[in-house]
Design a protein around this nucleic acid. Structure first.
Lengths: 220, 220
DNA sequence: GTTTGGATTTGTGTATCCACTTATCCAGTC
DNA sequence: GACTGGATAAGTGGATACACAAATCCAAAC
């Protein structure tokens, strides 16, 4: 479980941040759940202060919502907002892949193959499909060599991960998108940045409607 | 001076946040400046706690850098990072304008004309060129009706604004880009979302090298 | 003149405390 | 039985206190 922020200091605030982030990612803290500073502070053995500071950071990332005197709740996304996140992801990851394309080498492609194979195995190593899927996308983006871009993309992934997880848990088939990822790799191998960008944009935008529909139906 | 975050609560933390944000935007707190919680707390008549929480939010937005036990400094951008911000802006604002294009109506265009005219006047109403320029871009994006997208774009503007301001202060001419903005409006009037997106992307990317070169020369 | 080590100062990180706001519950009323 | 209002509980926001870390300064040694 990696963090979003660059450096990993050993402060209590950092620990609280990770703790809550992990809870949101894994689905322990579902959207709408109220987060009570004192409870979380007790869980990890500290006072409320660092926890509150962690909340502030999380609120900026859009992961929780803080209303004055009303406490902190895990942010939920409306159907529209899920669409929006996918739209933003499509252009940001499109940019990242466009910049990354000229940089891919043989090592990159063999690693991508490995990640793809790992994605198809069922839940070994503790990571579930959603996590492995994210790792695939993040590996693609990492070759862009754009730290800020990569971080922004990572944040968007965290936002939608809980929904993806619920969706896949309810869906009959574990998503047949693996073939699609193979196609992406082939496009990248061709080495055309613009084509690669278009492929990624399309790939991301195509996932959105199904997830949004599921969330709309489940009743946010 | 508008805030980035959506709702404006009357908490001390919010006040501290705005105070520091304003300081960074206006150039009072230059990149590299150390921000001492106690000093800022005294300035606005509160204790250090809310100020610290404001710092946490600002750090997530990339506006300040917090190192454990080393305090908080205003974030500075390297030449590469300035490029990166412009790259990200180009695709995000491109997306926003693409989505906005079908929504523009007569009112929108007359407001855009007004903003453009205001941009050409020299510093009336307290706002400088950089602020008015941002307002023009933000108005364009606002018609996309995508709150998260709009907020992300606003954050990027805050990041580079101080540099733009220093740059324009040193440059001989106040930037001849006004004509370019007129061209943008004409493109939007044609009503082709893809063309509009491409125009904005190009416009934004073209500004980057000059600013980056200036910052590199000035010696960050 | 430069370097080293230690006192001093400054500032940070967290816990605790208190005031105040909001939520909950319950009894009384219609 | 549903509604109202007030007591009570729960929780939040902010201030203060204190322990600790880092930076600074200065003097002694080389």
């Amino acid at each position: 479980m990696q963090t979003i922020d660059a450096f990993s200091a050993s402060t209590a605030e950092e620990e609280a941040y990770r703790h809550v982030l992990k809870g949101i990612r894994t689905g322990r803290f579902r959207p709408g759940t109220r987060l009570i500073p004192e409870d979380i502070a007790n869980e990890i053995g500290m006072s409320r202060m660092p926890v509150r500071e962690a909340f502030r950071r999380l609120s900026t990332e859009g992961l929780v919502l803080i209303r004055p005197n009303r406490g902190c709740v895990v942010a939920g996304l409306t159907t529209d907002e899920i669409y929006e996140v996918f739209e933003i992801r499509s252009v940001l990851e499109g940019l990242a892949v466009r910049l990354a394309t000229p940089r891919f080498d043989a090592d990159a492609f063999s690693e991508l193959d490995r990640l793809l194979a790992r994605m198809q195995t069922n839940g070994e190593g503790g990571d579930d499909w959603v996590t492995r899927h994210r790792q695939f996308h993040e590996y693609l983006c990492s070759y862009s060599q754009r730290p800020k871009l990569i971080r922004q993309i990572a944040r968007l992934h965290v936002t939608i991960e809980p929904y993806l997880r619920i969706w896949l848990h309810h869906a009959e088939k574990p998503l047949s998108a693996d073939e699609e990822h193979r196609v992406i790799i082939r496009t990248l191998e061709a080495g055309d940045p613009i084509a690669a960008e278009a492929t990624i944009e399309k790939h991301i935008l195509e996932t959105a409607p199904a997830l949004a529909a599921f969330v709309a139906q489940t009743g946010r």
